[in-house]
Amino acid sequence: MSQDEYRRDVLPGHAEFQLPTPAPVQRVNGRRPIPERPADRPADGADVWDQRVAEGLAFLRRRLAGAYEVDEFGFDPELTDALFQPILKVLYRDWFRTEVLGIENVPAEGGGLVVGNHSGTLALDALMLTVAMRDKHPQERHLRLLGADLVFRMPVMSELARAAGATVACNPDAERLMTGGQLVGVFPEGFKGIGKRFADRYKLQRFGRGGFVSAALRTGTPIIPVAIVGAEEIYPILADLKPLARLLGVPYFPVTPTFPLLGPLGLVPLPSKWLIQFCPPIPTAHLTEFADDPLVVYNLADQVRETIQATLHELLEKRPDAFGP
């Protein structure tokens, strides 16, 4: 069998896939992102403070009276927009100086599966990705994260995660969200990604069984790979105390330059420079019947993985100084 014949026979997915040729590198490190100013300044001399006080009180009254809507996953858009996003945005804009590239690759409407690399000990990259989506996307879309069941085991944390729009990473939930036209964010590396040592930074870990791909295939949802640079440096893991982790029932117990040495102060992330790049979407609508074909699923997962890895290298060249401006 010649190479051409062989290529015609193979299942779709990997064979026709080639890594995109990277564009010439343009360094962004060294210039500060343009500070954003709120555009809607009431110029007509209205009493701004009176308005703010009235809005704040109305918000408090609505919260206390339970007069708000929550979707079936527990997502509370009002609380997310009024409380979580503004707090995270301070971290996103002023602490990490995040820059977002390729936001036009995220569909304006309908479902989408955003697949990213995971790093940074605590899953701050997932939170920053939701802020980036809300901040930079023209439609200000909400990204619905899929989280490990450990998150949903912990009291308080589980409810915060649900209110912010996250749900347990399982195929029924992912498919339900995507058929509902939502953007779903997933980090297939899971704890292997965020718990890896600083020495292994920006090396993508295993992508598991590719369950995220079969969910996307079954619903015909495009997959949007996203590369996040910067999260690796916020809590560099020097060592992992495995026995202590086992004792506490967590997947890893990190030792960073500041934790546990400085106690709670060690929770302050180092101010690294962040770049988030959304890659062109991979359409899957024509592959719906292959959702249960392990080879197609595996090849697609591999394609996504390689795209993210290549984009990470590209972004790292753009950002030679991890803690630069």
Partner: peptide
């Protein structure tokens, strides 16, 4: 269970 999907269909 903590690993349950958020919404149960009859087949869960």
């Amino acid at each position: 269970s903590f690993r349950d999907p958020a919404v149960f269909t009859e087949d869960t």
